[in-house]
């Protein structure tokens, strides 16, 4: 089971690399667009569009990465008081829901991307970036990755549930 989890999370980690480099590119790009315009009055439309194009990979590939690194937000008013098994149960429920949400939105996003692909959609601004469907493809891709991370979390919660009860452990299995 652990091997499957590691394999799935390796995929998420790979996608995370793309997101991390998009992030670096974004910082450098926005800064250079500002400086180029201020000092040299140069302001190419495609480079301006690229600024917000880069949010797509960052945000959409980032969500499964954040989930993998447990950077998601949860309310712990009651969670902290549950037993180790109880927390595993909540984790299992959360993971199943993550799979459902990820799969549902990936499926919806696929149709949306397909529509854009059939139109060969590009920027409405002359001189803007073409291939807008590639940008939209991050929606199904990102949420499919979320579902994959959900599967990994699901297996991990199951492992926690099946493990012999040791009061101090149980939750540690996720970190």
């Amino acid at each position: 089971m652990l091997r499957i989890i590691n394999f799935l999370e390796a995929i998420i980690e790979r996608l995370g690399i793309v997101a991390r480099y998009s992030l670096l590119a974004l910082v450098l790009l926005v800064a250079s667009n500002v400086l180029l315009r201020y000092f040299f009055s140069i302001s190419p439309v495609p480079l301006q569009e690229l600024e917000w194009h880069l949010i797509s990979p960052i945000a959409l590939l980032g969500i499964s990465y954040a989930l993998k690194h447990r950077a998601d937000v949860r309310v712990d008013v009651f969670y902290d008081r549950f037993s180790a098994k109880g927390r595993c149960l909540v984790d299992l429920l959360g993971a199943v829901m993550t799979i459902a949400i990820g799969a549902a939105i990936a499926w919806l996003g696929l149709a949306y991307t397909e529509q854009s692909w059939q139109l060969m959609e590009g920027s409405p601004d002359p001189g803007g970036l073409p291939y807008r469907y590639l940008l939209k493809a991050f929606i199904p891709l990102g949420f499919a990755a979320l579902a994959i991370q959900g599967v990994a979390d699901c297996l991990r919660a199951l492992m926690g549930l099946m493990a012999p009860t040791k009061p101090s452990e149980g939750h540690e299995v996720r970190s």
């Binding site: 992030l23 974004l26 194009h53 949010i55 797509s56 945000a59 996003g109």
Partner: peptide, 26 residues
Amino acid sequence: LFSLMPSRLYGVVTNYTLLAIPLFVF
């Protein structure tokens, strides 16, 4: 109703003013 979902998500990830988030966090 949910076939409108991707449009909304696309609106979030192409929202120009939200660029401030990654930049400030960086």
